[in-house]
Amino acid sequence: MEAFLVSTGIVALAEIGDKTQLLAFVLAARFRRPLPIVAAIFVATIANHAFAAAIGTWITSLMGPDLLRWVLGASFLAMAAWTLVPDKLDEDEAQLAKYGVFLTTLIAFFLAEMGDKTQVATVALAARYHSMVAVVCGTTLGMMLANVPAVYFGDKIANKVSLKLVHGIAAVIFAALGVATLLGAGASLGV
């Protein structure tokens, strides 16, 4: 349950103001069809985060517990710093194909999420918690918690949320996970 809850919270916070959330705003404004956009974001997130969690799980099989602890601790600290850097939507990602709302959103969102903060966080969380299903379910829920309101209410809520505060909270959580991991928390989990 901890893996699910931590994954949900971290990704929901890290996603606010992230480039994939900006993409969700763009897609919602362009197509004005929220249901297929939300469905495509869900499918793209599951596919992307399942891949990322599989990588995280695989990484744990390559390293001994001591090395893994240092790598994960440093990774969480790096994610804390990265979370404080504001994202911008690349011009290439804003170019939308003419494949219909669902397929355009699916492709654009999946590609935008590759190498993104939340995907990297999913790799680290899967390696940390050794629970691929709980992490993927949690990170997917976190993505949906951040992006569904962006699709449905984007214009109305975008200016009411302090991105700096939300990113600061996410950074503190990542840093706490990093320090706890470096200090040996989770040793009973094999980390």
Rank of each mutant, 00 (worst) to 15 (best):
L103P: 05
D66Y: 11
G100L: 14
Q119H: 06
E113G: 02
V123F: 09
W70P: 11
S75K: 05
G100C: 15
L68K: 14
L67H: 08
L106G: 00
A124I: 14
A108F: 02
A94N: 10
R69I: 08
A112F: 00
M79P: 03
L111H: 01
L67A: 14
T122E: 11
F76I: 02
T105R: 01
L96M: 03
T105E: 04
L111N: 05
T118F: 00
V120M: 13
Q119S: 05
L96C: 05
F102C: 05
A80V: 07
W82R: 07
L68T: 08
Q95R: 13
D90N: 10
D66W: 10
T122I: 13
I107Y: 07
A81S: 10
G115C: 07
G100D: 11
M114W: 07
W82C: 02
K117G: 06
S75G: 11
S75P: 06
G115S: 09
A81E: 09
M79I: 11
S75D: 08
V123S: 04
E93P: 02
L84I: 08
I107W: 01
G64T: 08
G64A: 10
D92H: 13
T104D: 00
T105L: 05
V101E: 01
D92I: 09
R69Y: 08
Q119I: 07
K98Q: 15
K117L: 13
G115W: 11
A124E: 14
A124P: 06
A97V: 12
E91F: 13
L106Q: 00
Y99K: 14
A80F: 14
G64W: 11
V71H: 10
W82K: 06
F109L: 03
G100T: 15
K88R: 15
Q119M: 08
F102V: 04
A97P: 08
D87W: 03
M79G: 04
L89C: 01
A97T: 14
L67N: 07
T105F: 01
L103F: 15
G64Y: 10
L84D: 15
G73S: 12
L106P: 00
F76A: 05
V85L: 15
W82L: 11
K98F: 13
M79Y: 11
Q119V: 09
T105A: 09
T118R: 02
L106H: 00
Q95E: 15
Q119D: 01
L67P: 03
E91Y: 13
T122G: 14
L68Y: 10
Q95H: 02
D87L: 05
W70A: 13
R69P: 08
M79V: 09
A78L: 15
F109V: 00
V120K: 03
S75R: 06
G100M: 13
D116H: 02
G115D: 06
